[in-house]
């Protein structure tokens, strides 16, 4: 037994296995990097000042995507405005108030499952509740609320992590000085957790900006003449614009370069936001003051 398992063979087997893992990593990076590079090359030609600042012209075959960019920015900010207060409050409950037990387990299960609900189901939910029941119609408001609910678990997760990283000695010192629980949270814990909470909201922004299915029936329209003036207006949005241009436009081949350009803008926006969040987080981990 041990004779056939000589050290040399065992080393060889290890090298072989490690090369398999390395190849898996290379394949993944190669595929995803290839996708990004291809879009960068194809899309760069379409990007111009006009493309970023003008509305579409000549039944979408010329002009820019400014209304879609603006629509996505509004939708995303709206979503974070919904999710941030709720998410941070829920995270404060989880990290500062909740005691271990059945209720907490149920709440955690609820959050985990909310994170796993398919985005198209959020779309149906938004359609039934915000568009139909609350009579907001297909609008910026309905879309922001739907996206807000969708990114809630992301924001809760990041905010809770940030709150938990605040050392308990901070809380004990504040409570020991006679501050109440709420005073401690407001003046000691929250300020210390702020960068982490910020990271969470940026991650939420990035997630909301890239989602298509939840806004398809709640907010997005292929084309409007005017920019959104009120929260009850329909909006154009980058992801939906890509989908429609690529599948349902009347001039699919003619608009190919515009499609690549729009994809490039969306990717830059989403990955840019995530990159900022990741950089903030890694800096925080390195330069922790405590």
């Amino acid at each position: 037994m041990s004779g056939s398992n000589s050290m040399f063979l065992r080393r060889c087997r290890q090298q072989a296995a490690f090369w398999v893992f390395r190849l898996a990593m290379l394949a993944v990076l190669g595929a995803l990097g290839g996708v990004l590079l291809y879009i960068l090359i194809q899309g760069a030609g379409a990007i111009s000042w006009e493309f970023l600042t003008e509305p579409p012209r000549d039944s979408m075959t010329k002009g820019g995507i400014f209304p879609a960019i603006l629509g996505t920015i509004y939708l995303t900010l709206g979503a974070v405005a919904v999710a941030l207060p709720l998410g941070v409050a829920a995270a404060i409950y989880l990290s500062e108030y909740a005691a271990e037990g059945k209720v907490l387990r149920l709440v955690r299960l609820g959050i985990a499952n909310l994170a796993g609900v398919p985005s198209v189901v959020f779309g149906l939910f938004g359609l039934a509740l915000f568009v139909g029941y609350f009579k907001l119609g297909i609008s910026l408001a309905a879309g922001s609320l739907t996206l807000g609910v969708l990114i809630l678990p992301t924001v809760i997760g990041a905010a809770e992590e940030a709150l938990r990283q605040v050392p308990s000695t901070f809380r004990e010192a504040s409570l020991g000085l006679g501050a109440t629980r709420w005073q401690t949270i407001r003046k000691v814990v929250l300020p210390a957790a702020l960068p982490g909470i910020l990271t969470g909201s940026i991650l939420g922004l990035g997630r909301a900006a890239g989602e298509t299915a939840p806004i398809m029936f709640t907010a997005a329209t292929f084309y409007t003449l005017h920019l959104p003036k009120s929260p009850l207006d329909e909006v154009m949005a980058l992801p939906y614009h890509i989908y429609v241009l690529a599948t349902a436009g009347t001039h699919i081949e003619q608009t190919r370069h515009l499609q690549y350009g729009t994809v490039l803008v969306l990717i830059s926006l989403v990955l840019g936001l995530s990159l900022v969040a990741i950089i903030i987080r890694s800096r925080m981990r390195k330069h922790k003051k405590w």
């Binding site: 991650l203 997630r207 890239g210 992801p239 890509i242 989908y243 969306l266 990717i267 995530s274 990159l275």
Partner: peptide
């Protein structure tokens, strides 16, 4: 970072 790639992009 790549986990955040929008699905519409991969669909495209």
């Amino acid at each position: 970072l790549l986990a955040g790639l929008p699905s519409v992009v991969l669909g495209f």
